[in-house]
Computed example of a mutant assay.
Amino acid sequence: MKRARKKENEMTRTIRILTIFLAPMVALILGISAPGVWADDDDAELEFDEVEFNIEFNSTDNDLGVRGFVDGEPYKKIEIEDPNEKTIAKLKAKKGMKLQGFAELFFESGEPTLEDVSAPEFLARFPEGWYEFEGKTIEGDEIEGETYFSHVIPCGPEIDAVIDDSTVEISWEAPTTVVDPDETGYGPEEVCVDPEELDQELEIVAYEVILEGDERELTFKFDADVEELVIPLSLLEPGTEYKYEVIAIEDSGNQTITEAEFMTPQL
């Protein structure tokens, strides 16, 4: 009887040892053969290299629009969802383009004036919050990205151009006011308010200056602490009217344009 009990105890101990040894082996085999059991589907998706979606306000023409940019693996399909999970845009490649795919995509919307579409109407079309970009690569893999869409819209910078014998000096002052999202008027004196009244923070991070003549266009980019540009007249055509734009870029990516013109002297 004692001998039988001893044998039984030895068998029980052997089974326990086998259980301890086999448990991690089973887990290891499952981990190798079925990664989907452990991995989150979202983690397996590719991400776009860059996505942008923001507002452009032209303070001279008094109009508002949106603009976007998508960069990443060649993709054949893309959708954009607003913070309410409503699809606001969809693009699908076909035939040869479906095989080639998009790599970089830039787009701009129409730009109605504030007289035609007020700020509240415009902003109601594009709620503030996170916008999802979801697509499919040419290999059939899912790819995604997201960006925050802000309602902080700077009013236009004050600009000026002074010409002397050899140069033109373009200068600007940083915006200190923002577009009131609840103002239904369309004049600058009505639309622009102190950001503190709206509990907003305005931070200009960069400027861009664009110069357009009959045959030449020049573009300059500056950090936020630069407020002037001096151009030798030798770089410009004499006796020519130039349109210039100063673009103030806010930390959110929203940007505001102020435009004006100057005439270069005849030789």
Rank of each mutant, 00 (worst) to 15 (best):
A4T: 13
N9F: 08
T14G: 09
R16S: 10
L18Y: 10
I20S: 06
A27R: 01
I32F: 13
S33M: 13
P35I: 07
P35A: 09
G36I: 14
V37K: 12
A39S: 15
D42P: 00
D42C: 00
D43C: 04
A44I: 05
E45P: 00
L46G: 11
F48V: 02
V51Y: 04
E52H: 08
N54F: 13
I55S: 04
N58S: 10
S59F: 03
T60L: 10
D63N: 13
D63F: 08
G65H: 07
G68N: 12
D71A: 10
E73S: 12
P74I: 01
Y75N: 06
K76E: 14
E79Q: 07
E81S: 04
K86R: 11
T87I: 15
T87P: 03
A89L: 08
L91M: 07
L91Y: 03
K92I: 15
Q100K: 15
L114Q: 11
E115L: 10
E115S: 09
D116W: 02
D116K: 14
D116L: 12
S118P: 01
S118Q: 02
E128N: 05
Y131F: 07
E134M: 04
D141F: 06
I143S: 08
E144N: 11
E146R: 11
T147A: 13
V152G: 02
V152A: 04
I159W: 01
D160I: 10
D160F: 04
V162A: 04
I163A: 04
D164Q: 11
V168L: 03
I170P: 00
I170E: 06
S171Q: 06
S171P: 02
E173S: 12
A174N: 02
T176D: 10
T177I: 03
D180V: 05
Y186E: 11
Y186I: 04
E190Q: 15
E190L: 07
V193I: 02
E197Q: 14
E208W: 03
E212W: 03
D214V: 07
R216V: 10
L218G: 13
L218W: 12
K221V: 09
F222C: 01
I231C: 00
L233I: 11
S234Q: 12
L236R: 03
G239S: 14
T240H: 03
T240Q: 15
E241F: 10
Y242S: 13
Y244D: 00
I247C: 08
A248K: 06
D251V: 15
D251F: 09
G253W: 07
G253T: 11
N254L: 10
Q255D: 14
T256Y: 04
T256H: 02
T258M: 12
E259V: 02
A260H: 13
A260M: 02
A260V: 03
E261H: 05
M263S: 11
P265L: 05
L267F: 07
L267W: 06
